[in-house]
Computed example of a mutant assay.
Amino acid sequence: MDGVVIRSAGEGPATWAMESLFERLASGEETGGTLGVSLITQPPGVATPLHVHTHEAEAFYLLDGTMTYQAGEVRHELSAGSFIYLPSGIPHAFRVTGAIPVRFLGLTVPGGLMALYDEVGAPARERRLPGRDATPAEEEIRRWNEVAPRYGLRVVGPPIPADSAIDSS
């Protein structure tokens, strides 16, 4: 069946990057560039800097855990069952909150962004958070700075502070 992608649990490539586990469900390459989907697990405290994607829209559907998500100037508290869609060009950032890891489906349209994590991270030897097996932060940041522009990703501000209040609307 040309173009059909089917994955059972634990199949497909997995990458450790950003202290996190990215499990590929469908890559842009597999979907003719139209869609990328990954199951992402991140530990409490992980935060992205405020950034913009210029090539794709992004959507998250949270399965477990909580996060503070900033889209534009507004911050939202997301929990299991929450969904967020971000058109390209919207500055955004998030911080994983609470005491348990967050798990979510990450979707990009068009596909292709997940290859960035493969470039900056390392193949996951197991389906778990990397812990001590993580790439050193300094090395990963250096790789991000080198490759992110090729993926249309621009950092435009700092991460959400750990003690930041939520002004959800």
Rank of each mutant, 00 (worst) to 15 (best):
A124L: 03
E29Q: 15
E77W: 09
A71E: 09
P49Y: 00
M67D: 02
P159E: 04
W144N: 02
L86R: 09
A14D: 00
A71N: 08
A59N: 03
V4I: 15
F22D: 03
P110G: 04
V46Q: 14
S169W: 12
F94R: 03
A99N: 10
R24Q: 14
L86H: 02
E11I: 09
T97S: 12
W16H: 10
A134D: 15
A14H: 02
V102H: 01
H55S: 09
S164E: 15
E138S: 13
S168F: 11
G112A: 03
A80M: 01
M67V: 07
R142G: 05
T54V: 03
R142Y: 07
E19P: 04
Y69K: 00
H53S: 00
I6E: 13
L21S: 03
A47K: 02
M1D: 12
A165W: 08
A99R: 06
L78R: 01
A162W: 06
N145H: 12
I6K: 13
L86V: 05
D64G: 05
D167I: 09
E138D: 14
Y61H: 15
S38M: 14
I6G: 08
D2C: 07
F22E: 02
G152V: 01
A165V: 12
L129H: 11
R7H: 02
T68F: 00
R75P: 03
V5Y: 08
G98V: 07
E30C: 09
A26P: 03
T34S: 15
Q42S: 15
G112V: 03
H55D: 08
R95W: 07
L113I: 08
M18E: 13
M1H: 13
G89A: 02
R75E: 08
S169V: 13
V155S: 00
S164V: 08
P43T: 10
A14W: 00
G12K: 02
P123N: 10
L39F: 08
E23T: 12
D2V: 12
L39P: 04
E29G: 13
G33N: 07
T41A: 12
P91I: 01
I90F: 07
V5W: 10
P101A: 04
A165I: 09
E11K: 07
E138L: 11
E58Y: 00
L25W: 05
G106F: 07
E11Y: 06
A71W: 03
E11W: 04
F60A: 07
L153D: 01
L50R: 06
E139L: 14
V4G: 05
E29M: 09
E119N: 08
R143N: 06
E126I: 09
H92E: 09
R143A: 14
T66V: 11
E23K: 07
D167L: 13
I84Y: 01
A99F: 10
L86K: 04
T48W: 01
D64F: 10
Y61W: 13
A122K: 14
F60R: 08
